[in-house]
């Protein structure tokens, strides 16, 4: 329950400040524009590049938002208040994860529409694309929220976050790109399902580990 209160509070703060959301959406628009020009105008090229562009843009924008989720506490110097709340501290991680996950899904849905328009991704398969987005987005946010919390007190946190997160999320991004490619090119459902299963396993394993490890890593 407290995790939900924290996530909703962060959403309210983000909505009032809008700094993180505006940066992430602007970044996505710029990446799509540059990639669209680089791969275009040939339709086959764009169609092949679309899934990769989608997940790379989402991964970078997601890191910006992950950093933002914890930066709210640093900017306001309120991290101590969170750490002084009673009980074990997993819920702080879960709250931040929930906040980031909601933003990632909204941003991912927006990105899907843009990629569909520019890179010929078939929106007719939107239920499958959405499932891939949820599974891939969950794996990504689980890792990003954890490492953003781990580095929150460090001065070089923004640089470190990218260095720590990207090697860890490589399997998630690869599986998500493969699943999206399969959907874009009408692959057999069983092939797409195997990538979904892989993403599901990553999500469960990473989430369990991060929840267990978080109380130890957030201590000063």
């Amino acid at each position: 329950m407290r995790a939900l209160v924290l996530a909703l509070r962060d959403l309210r703060l983000e909505w009032r400040g809008r700094a993180g959301l505006l940066s992430a959406f602007s970044f996505i628009a710029v990446v799509l524009f540059i990639m669209g020009i680089a791969f275009g105008p040939d339709e086959a090229n764009l169609r092949r590049a679309g899934p990769g562009v989608l997940w790379v843009a989402l991964a970078f924008a997601g890191s910006m938002l992950a950093s933002r989720a914890w930066a709210l506490e640093v900017e306001n110097e309120t991290l101590d208040d969170l750490l002084l709340t009673p009980g074990s501290r997993e819920w702080i991680y879960v709250g931040k994860l929930l906040f980031l996950w909601l933003l990632m899904i909204v941003m991912g849905a927006f990105l899907l529409v843009l990629v569909a328009a520019w890179f010929y991704l078939p929106l007719s398969a939107w239920p499958q694309l959405f499932v891939t987005l949820v599974l891939g987005g969950t794996g990504y946010t689980v890792i990003a929220a954890f490492y953003a919390g781990l580095t929150v007190r460090l001065r070089a946190r923004d640089v470190l976050l990218y260095l720590l997160v990207f090697p860890m999320i490589l399997p998630v991004v690869l599986a998500a790109v493969k699943a999206t490619l399969g959907i874009a090119f009408g692959a057999e459902f069983s092939e797409i399902l195997s990538w979904w299963k892989l993403l599901g396993v990553f999500d469960v394993v990473y989430l369990t580990l991060c929840v267990l490890l978080f109380p130890g890593v957030i201590e000063g």
Binding site: R12, N76, D81, T85
Partner: peptide
């Protein structure tokens, strides 16, 4: 209860919202 110098609050929330949030997160 810890009151830092300066005390920490969320800038974009009003005083009463800060109080509500702080106590809600403390359970």
């Amino acid at each position: 209860g810890l009151v830092a110098n300066p005390p920490a609050f969320y800038r974009h929330l009003s005083g009463e919202e800060n109080l509500e949030q702080s106590l809600a997160l403390a359970g």
